[in-house]
Design a protein around this nucleic acid. Structure first.
Lengths: 156, 156
DNA sequence: TATTGTTATACTCTATAACTATA
DNA sequence: TATAGTTATAGAGTATAACAATA
């Protein structure tokens, strides 16, 4: 990289956006290490923090992860007492995964770190710009999540 | 995903942004398949399209890829006559990788597809919003690329 | 017969280490 | 001694397939 990004790359909005997402994730990964969790564990806790109970299948769809990966993820959290599995009485194949008080407390600490990373990365933006970007991305992703709810895809 | 994304996830700007980047990349991957290249090959061509010549090392830094991965990537392009390697006469360890005319032509076709994917994904945004987002992300990434030029990191 | 969750296995991708040639 | 590029290999991460329990 002699003198900055080649213009052919810099002008690709998708490339810049992808790397921005990667940067945010890596920084958060670093910040979460002292808490003993990965970004994925944090995302599970984030879901559970506003959902009472969820099945592993539902969480896999939201995170775009293969359901087999949710097993180990929930295992990790349960082993540390951050969430608990109970069978769904109305469909005993499913678990009802719920965050414990410890899990909610850890989520709050992790969420603070995530917000700090966000403030760091988005530092160059004014409050107006930031809220425009955040709302814009949210609106852009609405059709994606709608489609995802109907025809779940996986990978990554 | 019973009723949309759990709020704990939806409110995480970093999560939405990461998935947006993933979505853009996956859609482009699909669109590029008929051209017989992956997104990575396209990104290499994009760099070469505005840079005359670059070393494999420089390109690895820009794409945040391990230099060993650039070998196969440039091999692929060279085998199809899309780029060519010549030794740098001033430092015969380095290659000067250059896009051929065919490479530039394929890049233009791929860039058109990338722009179409962008138009599709960012469809919900007004022109003003889109340009605000694109410029904002570009500004956010400036310090990242500056740091990357000094202390290259890898992975992904 | 289909679905949730589980396990074990195979596969893909990436990083690591060792090497050549240049500097 | 250090760097660009190459190769082969080991490791991490992921998907695939088969299974048990339930619907």
């Amino acid at each position: 990289m002699r003198d900055g990004l080649p213009e052919g790359l810099a002008s690709l909005a998708g490339f810049q956006l992808s790397k921005c997402g990667w940067w945010l994730e890596q920084r958060l990964e670093e910040e979460l290490e002292p808490l003993g969790i990965r970004v994925r564990h944090f995302l599970v806790l984030a879901m559970l923090s506003t959902s009472e109970t969820l099945s592993q299948q539902e969480m896999a769809d939201c995170l775009l992860l293969d359901p087999t990966l949710m097993v180990g993820l929930v295992d990790d959290l349960e082993a540390r007492g951050l969430c608990e599995r109970t069978r769904d009485p109305r469909d005993r194949r499913r678990y009802r995964v719920r965050a414990t008080e410890d899990g909610r407390a850890l989520h709050r600490r992790a969420r603070t770190l995530a917000d700090e990373v966000g403030a760091e990365v988005f530092g160059p933006l004014s409050d107006d710009e930031l809220s425009t970007v955040v709302r814009a991305i949210g609106r852009v992703m609405e059709p994606f999540w709608a489609e995802q709810a109907l025809h779940p895809r996986r990978k990554r």
